[in-house]
Simulated scan of single mutants.
Amino acid sequence: MQNTRITESPSLYRHIEQMSTEDIVQHINEEDHKVAPAVKAALPAITALINAAAPLLAAGGRVFYLGAGTSGRLGVLDASECPPTYGVDAGIINGLMAGGDAALRFGIEDAEDSYETGWQDLQANNVHPGDFVIGIAASGTTPYVVGALRECRKHNIATGCIVCNPGAPVAAEADYPIEVITGPEFITGSTRMKSGTAQKMVLNMISTALMIRLGRVSDNRMVYMQITNQKLTDRGTRMLMEAAGISDYEKARALLQLHGSVQEALNNL
């Protein structure tokens, strides 16, 4: 399978350093407008991945995001937001990245060059056939991700991926590949821009849909969100008042704090 690295293609813009600030931000915005249609074109593949992963989660399995650089950071970000938003255990959606936690803040670019360490990181988390592994790599060539997905296939672990080049090696190793072709970046090869935006959008879809399928959303509300600050306490209190027909704010607030989430409070009325 040929890998066409569109993400490395020359920018459509020349002599960017000579542009006015107004022109720079206008052209970046013009490029950003290309992202949503590219994601839309990938919706069937995104749907297929979610439908494959959801039964595994419902049966007690886990999702692992695996990436390097911007892609890895986006996976860690999405995973870290699931517990406070949906009240799930931290181990349900996991983000792993080349170079470990230190790479979240500092560029450890050569950490992605090993075909072995991605699988080693998964093994350290006791990955098994009941789990689902999603490789994230804008280029679609990252050895850290390619090697991990290849080993997952050998061990009967279902996999997906999010890449931004067609015919990429990462996609060839994935059972449920998602290709979001966003085109050349405004700064040539700077995949933290359109590619990163596309990956963030797809990750939002995957985790949100999985949490909905797990019953962590009622109507359009985050009824299992963690009540960890004043803003969320107020939001949860008002949600509970509306859902249960409680007119007394302080009563609803006390019930929410007693049971820890809107849904648990509703379950115990």
Results as ranks from 00 to 15, higher is better:
47 T>F: 05
8 E>I: 00
12 L>V: 00
206 I>Q: 02
129 P>I: 07
31 E>S: 10
205 M>G: 00
197 T>A: 13
224 Y>K: 02
14 R>E: 15
169 P>E: 10
176 Y>D: 08
42 A>Q: 07
181 I>W: 01
165 N>K: 12
168 A>P: 01
148 A>R: 00
164 C>S: 12
54 A>K: 07
93 I>K: 00
245 G>R: 07
159 T>E: 03
160 G>K: 05
54 A>S: 15
257 Q>S: 08
36 A>M: 13
16 I>H: 09
146 V>K: 06
188 T>M: 03
233 T>M: 13
90 A>E: 08
246 I>Q: 11
204 N>H: 13
50 I>C: 09
34 K>V: 05
3 N>K: 03
158 A>C: 13
249 Y>G: 11
230 Q>G: 09
130 G>I: 02
63 V>H: 06
205 M>S: 04
192 R>N: 05
92 I>Y: 03
171 A>L: 07
261 S>F: 06
4 T>F: 11
105 R>Y: 02
100 G>V: 13
189 G>V: 11
61 G>L: 10
129 P>D: 14
172 A>C: 10
220 N>H: 05
151 E>A: 13
109 E>W: 04
153 R>V: 11
36 A>Q: 08
80 S>W: 00
151 E>Q: 15
125 N>F: 05
214 L>M: 15
162 I>T: 02
45 A>K: 07
80 S>P: 01
121 D>K: 03
89 D>N: 13
149 L>P: 10
254 A>I: 01
70 T>M: 05
250 E>V: 10
199 Q>H: 08
179 E>V: 03
139 S>R: 06
123 Q>Y: 01
226 Q>D: 13
83 P>D: 12
38 A>M: 05
157 I>W: 00
249 Y>W: 13
108 I>E: 09
177 P>Y: 12
28 I>P: 04
41 A>E: 07
120 Q>L: 02
174 A>K: 08
236 G>N: 02
165 N>L: 09
59 A>L: 09
150 R>E: 10
219 D>M: 03
267 N>T: 13
127 V>H: 03
10 P>I: 06
2 Q>D: 11
152 C>G: 06
222 M>K: 00
106 F>V: 15
210 L>D: 08
236 G>L: 07
94 N>P: 09
101 D>R: 06
237 T>F: 11
236 G>H: 02
106 F>E: 14
133 V>N: 00
266 L>S: 04
115 Y>S: 04
106 F>A: 10
25 V>C: 14
92 I>P: 05
132 F>L: 02
226 Q>S: 13
8 E>K: 12
170 V>R: 04
154 K>E: 13
158 A>S: 14
37 P>Q: 11
116 E>N: 03
116 E>T: 04
268 N>G: 06
61 G>I: 08
51 N>Q: 15
140 G>T: 07
101 D>E: 15
94 N>D: 03
21 T>E: 00
40 K>D: 14
79 A>G: 11
121 D>T: 05
207 S>K: 03
143 P>F: 02
217 V>W: 02
140 G>R: 01
165 N>A: 11
42 A>P: 09
